[in-house]
Design a protein around this nucleic acid. Structure first.
Length: 290
RNA sequence: GCCGAGAUAGCCAAGGUGGUCACGGCGGAGGUCUGAAAAACCCCAGAUGUCAGUUCGACUCUGACUCUCGGCA
């Protein structure tokens, strides 16, 4: 019986703190599965708890997958699964407990339940070409390439340019069928699988407002300025992140500071809601309300 | 006090020579999710300032009132 712990949940629920407590108790190491904290230099606004981690009460518990790519680098759930699988093995081999903690449920889902390896990595050139197409055009292209793939799309996805492009990408890089048995190694299900969620939404909003204010006080704006100065842009994957997007707009004088803060808070609340919608479908999660 | 402009959902806002009026966006509810996910997308709810008048019928026309914004005093 393997011994893996996973902690998922909405943003601002104290996942890291819980993870650290469990790490102390079970001789564990943390593995981050937060798609934003994977990026270097995104510290204040993504809420990396670096100072917490170095506190001596946690006697230097290791955390994996912080700061592993630069903000202009593409990173996907596939990359995550590939990276994390050997890390889990390594931790186990050393007799310690892997503790997965984060908010990007998609990454965790693909790790735990598998992801089809149809051997078609992102084709950025193709994506670039498809980018100016209308949804209608994308639908037509996919229909011509692979009707079955098109027909499997639900009403939401059939209107979603990203999903259409991905299907086109697969259909145009693989000669036949879109199904191959996954050869990606997946990990065993965690024996402790905790989800943290807010009982009521107004409380969540309050906490997020407070957190945004704190991050502004801690230098959120300077963090963005610094990133722009070393020539990262709002279109880089890492900066397509709540907080950064709004502050960039403010710095470009497109919106006022008040509006930027309001948007930032709203987007985070909406994000938290979407997180929950997605995770709710996983019946293996034991929920704790806060 | 006078003149002018305006009052349409929680907020911003389009319209139409009276005919079930009511475009959008934001925000709100609920969803989707197999290599971009703090992304992208689907979907639902919700409105004509108040009181009269004209009319078969008023959100639309008329009057008064209330409030807002300009200008003059």
């Amino acid at each position: 019986m393997t011994n893996i712990i996973a902690i998922v949940g909405q943003t601002a629920t104290g996942k890291t703190k819980l993870a650290l407590e469990l790490a102390k108790k079970h001789n564990g190491e943390l593995i981050n599965f937060d798609s934003r904290q994977i990026y270097k230099y995104l510290d204040i606004i993504t809420g990396k708890d670096k100072d917490v981690l170095t506190m001596k009460q946690w006697n230097n518990i290791t955390i994996w997958l912080y700061d592993i790519v630069t903000p202009n680098q593409y990173f996907s759930s596939f990359d995550f699964v590939k990276l994390v699988t050997p890390i889990i093995e390594d931790i186990k081999k050393r007799g310690k407990t892997p503790i997965l903690v984060g908010g990007t449920y998609l990454y965790l889902k693909h790790l735990l339940y598998g992801i089809d390896d149809n051997n078609s990595p992102p084709n950025f050139k193709l994506r670039n070409e498809l980018n100016n197409k209308t949804v209608k055009e994308l639908q037509n292209i996919l229909t011509k390439l692979d009707v079955q793939s098109f027909n499997r799309l639900n009403n939401s996805d059939v209107n979603n340019p990203r999903r259409l492009m991905r299907r086109i990408e697969i259909a145009s890089t693989t000669k036949k069928r879109t199904y191959i048995r996954s050869d990606l190694k997946r990990t065993d299900l965690p024996n402790t699988f905790i989800g943290l969620r807010y009982k009521d939404k107004s409380k969540l909003r309050q906490v997020i407002i407070k957190r945004v204010e704190e991050r502004l006080k801690n230098g959120a704006i300077d963090e963005v300025k610094k990133l722009l100065k070393i020539s990262y842009t709002e279109n880089d994957p890492g900066l397509k992140t709540i907080g950064y997007q709004q502050i960039i707009k403010y710095l470009n004088k497109e919106i006022t500071m008040e509006k930027a803060v309001e948007d930032w808070v709203n987007k985070e609340v909406q994000y938290a809601k979407r997180q929950l919608t997605f995770m709710k479908s996983d019946k293996n999660i034991s929920w704790r309300e806060i």
